[in-house]
């Protein structure tokens, strides 16, 4: 339970960073999608259920400040978290390529779907422009931010667990 509370705090922190600092660190009007990083990281490090949990709340918050339908980002983020959870324990936690690829794929799909909903259906057919000017730069920027932050997540992830004593005991027994 404490772990979930910790994750919610991280989500809120990232959300606040996204909507306040986002414009300040934007390059060419493009800001990284900080919130899509969370379901991937937690899904990859802790399994599908965690990924879906984080994805749902991160997406819900994202929807509240974006001008789209409530629940759309939550839906996509949940699937991204689930996808990341598939690779849980298949690779070393410190392996960075797998989550990076999931972030690229997830962000592309998410932004492409929002393009379809927000623009394509309003007869804005300039697909190449939107992909090259908005989607790809955002993917790359998000990927860079992820690479910079991943060590921090690796360090933080077990710390979320420490507060929960029962789990720590289990963990120790298994190790010994």
């Amino acid at each position: 339970m404490k772990r979930k509370a910790g994750e919610l705090l991280i989500i809120i922190l990232f959300y606040v960073l996204q909507i306040t600092l986002g414009r300040a660190i934007s390059i060419g009007g493009i800001m990284p999608n900080l919130l899509v990083i969370l379901p991937v990281v937690f899904g990859y490090l802790n399994g599908k259920n965690e990924g879906m949990f984080v994805g749902f709340f991160a997406g819900l918050l994202y929807d509240l400040s974006a001008s789209s339908l409530l629940g759309f980002s939550a839906l996509v983020f949940v699937y991204i978290g689930y996808l990341a959870g598939i690779f849980y324990r298949r690779y070393e936690g410190s392996e960075m390529i797998i989550p990076l690829v999931i972030i690229f794929a997830g962000d592309f799909i998410f932004e492409f779907l929002s393009y379809v909903g927000n623009f394509l259906l309003h007869n804005r057919l300039n697909l190449i422009y939107f992909i090259t000017r908005f989607i790809i730069p955002e993917m790359i920027y998000t990927g860079i931010v992820f690479v910079l932050l991943y060590k921090l997540f690796l360090w933080l992830n077990p710390h979320l667990e420490v507060r929960n004593k029962r789990r720590v005991n289990n963990f120790d027994e298994r190790n010994i």
Partner: peptide, 8 residues
């Protein structure tokens, strides 16, 4: 605060 996406 600003919108969290790049579209708006």
């Amino acid at each position: 605060g600003t919108s969290s996406d790049n579209w708006y």
